[in-house]
């Protein structure tokens, strides 16, 4: 286990030092974060016009959902997306060979290898939103703690779905749009699940678990999530994580290690 932590530390130190070469990126990503946040607040603000309450949410309650979304978006940019890109590159160039030959779990390696500091502005913005909403809603520390666990589980779902999509590269080789598609799917999680029509609610719960990524963890933070939802969250996140591991092992049977 210690070996894993040491490896991880080295991985991230190496990635961050490589990324630091592009310093203007900090400016660009900060601006992107601010603009995205402003746009999202503007859009949700439009929904709150004329005394309307989307899905029966109060303004700070809607902000908890947006906060969890922004947090996960940051996680995606910092950790999930760079590693998905690395996976497709490794498969395309055939250098996945070297990873597979290392005595470290290959899925761990391919999921944690890279870290980009540029998603951290979004993580900070998400935490800021959650802090503000939590203060307005007077969330107890215990609620925050259990909500935190729920957010982690939501992140696991996002990871598992993305990793399974990225694993498809073993067959399709060219899959650069995964990140864009994943970002678009997560986009649906910007708004409370109750603000959608019934068909959408079913789809985002049963087919594409967007509800479990943002709305359920946000409800857990507010202390409003029922036991059924929390159980659902645990089952979906555990199940998808196991599925991502199984699918990865299955895909490796078909990996032909392109190019001789």
């Amino acid at each position: 286990m210690r070996r894993y932590f040491k490896t991880l530390g080295l991985f991230w130190a190496v990635s961050v030092s490589a990324e630091m070469a592009y310093r203007t990126n900090f400016l660009i990503t900060s601006l992107t974060t601010l603009l995205t946040l402003a746009g999202a607040l503007f859009t949700i603000g439009l929904l709150f016009q004329n005394g309307h309450t989307p899905g029966g949410y109060s303004w700070p309650a809607a902000l908890t959902v947006l906060g969890v979304y922004t947090l996960l978006d940051g996680l995606q940019q910092s950790l999930l997306a760079p590693n998905r890109t690395a996976l497709t590159e490794h498969v395309r160039d055939g250098t996945l060979d070297f990873v597979l030959l290392k005595p470290v779990d290959a899925q761990f390696w391919m999921s944690m290898r890279r870290f980009s500091p540029w998603g951290l502005t979004d993580v900070a913005a998400g935490l800021g939103l959650l802090g503000y909403a939590g203060w307005r809603l007077e969330i107890s520390p215990l609620g925050a703690l259990s909500g935190g666990v729920a957010v982690v589980l939501g992140g696991v779902i996002l990871y598992a779905v993305g990793f399974m999509l990225a694993t498809l590269t073993v067959w399709f080789v060219k899959l650069y749009n995964i990140t864009i598609a994943m970002a678009a799917l997560l986009e649906a999680g910007r708004y409370p699940i109750q603000a959608y029509p019934a068909v959408y609610r079913t789809f985002f719960t049963a087919v594409l678990p967007v509800a479990f990524m943002t709305s359920v963890p946000a409800a857990a933070l507010r202390g409003e999530a029922g036991a059924g939802w929390l159980l659902g969250l645990a089952v979906v996140s555990g199940g998808l994580f196991a599925a991502s591991c199984a699918f990865w092992r299955f895909a490796l049977r078909f990996y032909t290690s392109a190019s001789s």
Partner: peptide, 21 residues
């Protein structure tokens, strides 16, 4: 025709990584 060393970093960094791995 393939390399495991990280292209943009000194080889020493890749070696340290392998030592940890």
């Amino acid at each position: 025709n393939k390399q495991q060393l990280v292209w943009d970093l000194p080889a020493g960094d890749s070696l340290r990584l392998n030592a940890a791995v």
